[in-house]
């Protein structure tokens, strides 16, 4: 999926925006909460706007607070054959913890529409 380039820069965040984001995140917010979070989120965005007022040409965006890159692991399976039994027990335990299982698979309610 390509990033959309036409995302408009919002003005001050509205109660509807907050309700929309809450819905996307499957959060059930009461009217009081919606009111409170709209104010709080607006303050956060105001702070970001303050930063935008600075001259930051030539400063790379910070995507991560740690001064690290290229943290990699070798492509080696974690489970050696000697650990197969332990691994099997782990898998069984995981399945046993699920509300419903069929043929070693997790049984879930019907889903409408295809995964993206």
């Amino acid at each position: 999926m390509k990033p959309d380039s036409d995302v408009s820069v919002p003005g001050r965040i509205t109660r509807d925006d907050v309700a929309y984001v809450a819905r996307l995140a499957r959060l059930n917010l009461s009217d009081t909460e919606l009111e409170a979070f709209t104010g709080q989120l607006a303050d956060v965005l105001d702070h970001a706007a303050d930063l935008e007022a600075l001259d930051l040409d030539g400063v790379a965006p910070t995507s991560h607070p740690l001064p690290l890159s290229n943290v990699l692991r070798p492509d080696v399976p974690a489970v050696e054959s000697a650990d197969e039994v332990d691994h099997r027990l782990f898998c069984d335990e995981v399945l046993a913890a699920a509300p419903a299982v069929e043929e070693n698979r997790f049984r879930v309610p019907p889903v409408l529409g295809e995964a993206p």
Binding site: F106, R107, V111, G113
Partner: peptide, 12 residues
């Protein structure tokens, strides 16, 4: 068919 399924089974 996805739209008429009674339930789904997931393998990770």
């Amino acid at each position: 068919r996805i739209h008429e399924a009674a339930y789904s089974l997931v393998d990770y």
